[in-house]
């Protein structure tokens, strides 16, 4: 009787443990997939940054599978990734989903000829000069095993899984230790003047 109860209890303990371990492994596999790259480690709970329109990244990047670089075009050719101009939004949204309140608000800005006053989420100090184009070249365009369609997995190194968010949150610390550990793992440059000047 007692032994039987013991078996039941051990099973009751084992099941959630097994589920937990499986979840851990599956979440780790999301990062392990990017070839020729060691993703940076570290998490951070950023504060909510209020935006003029609650832009749904999930609808664009996850459901409709739009490439990050379709809107953030400057990432592959300049230091900054850039916010798309309102004309790029209106390119689709003069036709698509015009009855939604968020789109109507966007159209108001468009008719006023004003850009929506977006707030910056991923901000580094002024003495840090991060370059998007070189990181994209290293991890995406020079990386023959990674098709450009999967660029969002590389963006997720520093920006987190933005396609599961509406407006972007800061989920990575973006501190110097975070950068340097990744540079050491991926054999990036270690000269101070690469980033600080």
């Amino acid at each position: 009787m007692n032994a039987g109860r013991g078996i039941v209890w051990s099973w009751a303990l084992f099941l959630p443990l097994a589920v937990f371990l499986l979840l851990m492994m599956s979440s780790a596999q999301v990062y392990a997939e990017v070839p020729n790259a060691v993703p940076p480690k570290g998490d951070h709970k950023g504060e909510d940054v209020p935006q003029p329109i609650e832009f749904p990244h999930d609808i664009h990047a996850k459901i409709n599978e739009i490439n990050c670089m379709y809107c953030h075009t400057y990432a592959r050719r300049s230091k900054v990734a850039g916010i798309p101009p309102t004309s790029k939004c209106m390119g689709c949204h003069s036709v698509i989903a015009t009855d939604k309140p968020r789109i109507q608000k966007l159209t108001e800005y468009w008719e006023k000829r004003e850009p929506p006053p977006w707030n910056k989420v991923h901000d580094v100090p002024d003495y840090v000069h991060f370059t998007h184009e070189k990181h994209l070249k290293r991890f995406v365009f020079d990386n023959e095993e990674l098709p450009v369609e999967r660029v969002s997995e590389v963006c997720a190194f520093c920006h987190g899984e933005v396609k599961n968010m509406t407006v972007a949150h800061k989920v990575k610390p973006l501190t110097m230790g975070f950068c340097v550990r990744c540079h050491e793992a991926n054999k990036g440059p270690s000269d101070c003047w690469k980033c600080h000047k």
């Binding site: 100090p125 003495y127 000269d191 101070c192 003047w193 600080h196």
Partner: peptide, 9 residues
């Protein structure tokens, strides 16, 4: 070959 100065350090 330059003599660097890192301001934040």
């Amino acid at each position: 070959g330059l003599n660097a100065q890192v301001y934040n350090r």
